[in-house]
Design a protein around this nucleic acid. Structure first.
Lengths: 191, 191
DNA sequence: CAAGATAAAATACAAATGTCGATTAAAAGC
DNA sequence: GCTTTTAATCGACATTTGTATTTTATCTTG
């Protein structure tokens, strides 16, 4: 029904409605939980006809997923350090960046958690694992740990880090950030 | 409205309807995805009036959560080893058990993943983290790593393990189980 | 086994969901 | 600019959701 050529060279009208819908959703999620929002609510706020909504997304969760994909790009570009030191330093720096990134978006994150946006949030974890995998595939790591699978190692450490972040963000009385990072340094092998 | 005394000494009628609903949901999830199922579908299959459904659960996800809580108990009791060796051995054995537990329930697990049952699945991760935390709080670990927080360590390693399991289960061409476990052993410190 | 308690069924209802076909408005391409 | 293409709007509809109220059936307790 809709073209959706190469992701971004959409019709002007389409980009506008999508943008409005994302803005409306983000605004409404500051007020009440995702689950409490109806498609009608979002459309009313976005000043978009409900039929138009369904021409773009099959349901609310798909809109949310779309929104989180944009967040994903932002997260990756701000968290991944460019100057690649050791794999260990790479991971620790990225972890610290990610911690800050989510700390600054705590409200949104918690809203996602309680809303079945979990599956969508996991896309981000996949992306992060891919990034670490790329770094771990480079020769210096392969030499340091010849028997380890870069893909498995990436999943392991990224999963651990995300789990820590989730726990930290959802805790009402979180441990100090520095303590978290100190612990983290102790868990990462020196390569 | 309903008594729901101590979890399990419910009215016979209540237990029966809950049981029917869980059975119906499990059966239907073999046929199509959770998202495609309506409350009406579940009730029709369970031969329970829709109004009765809403007397027990607020929506489908709550029924699913209820179902997964039962699974959780089963998982914990089968995966947690009784004879406590070192924390390392404890974790590795539990990991291996968990891997088998989920491998044998791959269909259900994948159904959950794709269905926004993610939030519910995370309850299991919380429970597992609690178990490891209990083990890590014991004196032998505290002595071995006096500067590490047992709670943080538990989150870290359980999160890593669950992430690996999720990845392994959702992969169409998964790495051999033994290779996964070999890698895992290399990532766990020798305490 | 009888009496009281309480869960399930039955019915009805307002709101939300998802889908159509037809019309109107606004872009893209020449 | 003008035409063609295509998205947005409008109105309507069948289905699902969630809730409230009343009646019926079943369990628990003494």
């Amino acid at each position: 029904m809709m073209r959706q050529k190469n992701q971004e060279n959409l019709d002007l009208r389409q980009r506008k409605t999508r943008h409005s819908l994302v803005e409306a959703l983000a605004a409404l999620m500051e007020e009440r939980s995702f689950q409490e929002l109806s498609v009608s609510d979002i459309c009313r706020r976005a000043m978009v006809h409900r039929t138009t909504f369904y021409a773009h997304f099959t349901d609310k969760q798909e809109l949310l997923r779309y929104m989180l994909q944009q967040l994903e790009r932002e997260c990756i570009s701000t968290c991944i350090p460019e100057d690649s030191g050791s794999p260990r330093q790479f991971f620790l720096t990225a972890s610290r960046n990610a911690l800050h990134f989510f700390r600054d978006r705590k409200a949104l994150y918690r809203a996602c958690l309680q809303s079945g946006a979990d599956t969508e949030a996991r896309l981000l974890e996949d992306a992060a694992a891919r990034q670490l995998y790329l770094r771990l595939s480079q020769p210096d790591f392969r030499r340091a740990l010849p028997d380890s699978d870069p893909e498995i190692a990436a999943r392991f450490y990224v999963g651990a880090m995300f789990s820590l972040i989730r726990w930290w963000l959802s805790s009402d009385d979180p441990v100090p950030e520095e303590r978290l990072l100190e612990n983290l340094e102790r868990f990462i092998p020196n390569i």
